[in-house]
Design a binder for these strands. Structure first.
Lengths: 106, 106
DNA sequence: TTGACATGCAACCAAATGGTTGCATATTAA
DNA sequence: TTAATATGCAACCATTTGGTTGCATGTCAA
């Protein structure tokens, strides 16, 4: 599980959409994931393979179906690379504040 | 500052190395950054332009030199996208534990 | 002012990337 | 067993990407 693979995997908008889809509903099969996508099944398969190689997605064979699960660990490691622990808490607080302000404004 | 630009920027190992370099010493000029890199100055310029467009790097003109600064905000937003707040604390604790264990082992 | 230094712009090229189509394999259900 | 369903593999193609070289511009210092 090289970090390089993780970053490369996250670079593509389709793959991020797949992660979003799994974040919303975990354990989806290939066909289920394909339904939201506007491309062939084979293209989606390739993207999932890249996500798997990056260890961002874990799979489980169940009969003739393949279930896909999101793995958040590598994403957390990204944040830890360039953000110090203290700075990170500060940024989280800032982002919370921003969200609260956005919610309160008309 | 689109998220897409951020992910695309982080996809390349050279650009991540540039971020590392700025994380180690902030405010470096183009030439300073070039010294660690094994490619032409023009190539580095292109990479920095992509990092700037992603708002991962901020620049300040000082005379004929251009200083480059790391901006951690977009990186924090990545982590917030796929990791819930509670889960994130758990992952941080886990990563801390792992580091401590690695340090203690021979 | 003039030469040296720091950066900017543009054309060009090889390789990687994201997509397609076509066919193969494996499992379930009738 | 057999037809339908779910996934896998491979060849092929257009576009993007990361790099180069060559030249232009702008600023500092002698």
């Amino acid at each position: 599980m090289s970090m390089d693979a993780v970053f490369r995997a996250l670079a593509d908008p389709t793959r991020r959409q797949l992660l979003d889809s799994l974040h919303a509903r975990n354990g989806q099969t290939l066909n289920a994931l394909c339904e939201h996508m506007d491309m062939t099944r084979q293209a989606v398969t390739k993207h999932l393979a890249i996500l798997e190689e990056a260890n961002l997605v874990t799979t489980m064979r169940r009969g003739r179906e393949k279930e896909h699960y999101l793995n958040p660990v590598p994403i957390n490691e990204i944040a830890e690379r360039w953000i110090g622990k203290f700075e990170r808490h500060r940024l989280d607080a800032l982002s919370d504040l921003k969200q609260r302000l956005e919610r309160e404004e008309p």
